[in-house]
Computed example of a mutant assay.
Amino acid sequence: MAKPAKSVMIDIGIDEKDRAAIADGLSRLLADTFGLYQKTHSFHWNVTGPMFNTLHAMFMEQYTELWNALDEIAERIRALGFPAPGSSGQYAKLTTIKEEQGVPPAMDMIRQLVEGHEAVARTARKVFAAAEKGGDEPTADLLTQRLQIHEKTAWMLRSMLE
């Protein structure tokens, strides 16, 4: 569990134990989002084949959205009074996203990204219990937005596999 940042006392109506549990879950969401961002960006650079233009542009849109989400998630962790993880070592310990060491064919890239978006959705869903217990509506709202994006993106990618 993350240790609170050394600063002024925080009194936002969520006790420290609940804030810590929420920040811990959000740290896992941040790590998964970063792992999926890296994978999507790499696939953008390395995709080839007859769907190159479509996938290259789609992957760019997706990694840009993921990049922007990182800031929102990290800032919510900070608003709760905890440091946001920011190193590759921290992310490696927290993430459920498997790294791709090579350059798979385009259809395998799509499959991996479907799996990645579904994994991030599962991670986001797990944080809801802590957010609800603590009465943390801003985190619940953030999680809802992230779930909508990841579930829609997974559906769109999955549609390309049919």
Rank of each mutant, 00 (worst) to 15 (best):
M156W: 10
D141M: 12
T123Y: 06
D136T: 03
Q145H: 11
P138E: 08
Y91C: 03
R111K: 14
L161F: 06
L143V: 02
F82I: 00
G102M: 02
A84H: 03
T95K: 03
I110A: 06
T123R: 10
K93A: 14
A106V: 07
V103R: 14
L161T: 02
Q90R: 12
V114Y: 09
T96Q: 11
A130R: 01
A129E: 15
I97R: 01
L147M: 07
K133A: 15
E99K: 07
E132M: 08
V114R: 12
I149Y: 13
P138Q: 09
P83A: 10
G86I: 05
R158N: 13
F128H: 10
M107A: 11
L142V: 00
L113E: 10
T139W: 12
T139S: 15
A129W: 08
Q112G: 14
A106G: 07
R125C: 05
A140L: 11
T95C: 06
L142Y: 02
M109K: 03
K93L: 14
R125V: 00
A131C: 02
A140M: 15
R111Y: 09
T153C: 01
V114F: 10
L161W: 05
W155A: 09
A84V: 06
A121T: 02
G86D: 04
A140K: 13
L143T: 01
F82Y: 08
A84I: 05
R122C: 08
R158F: 05
L94E: 03
Q101L: 12
G86M: 08
Q101A: 10
E99I: 02
T139F: 12
W155N: 08
V114A: 06
E100I: 02
G89E: 15
S87C: 03
S159Y: 07
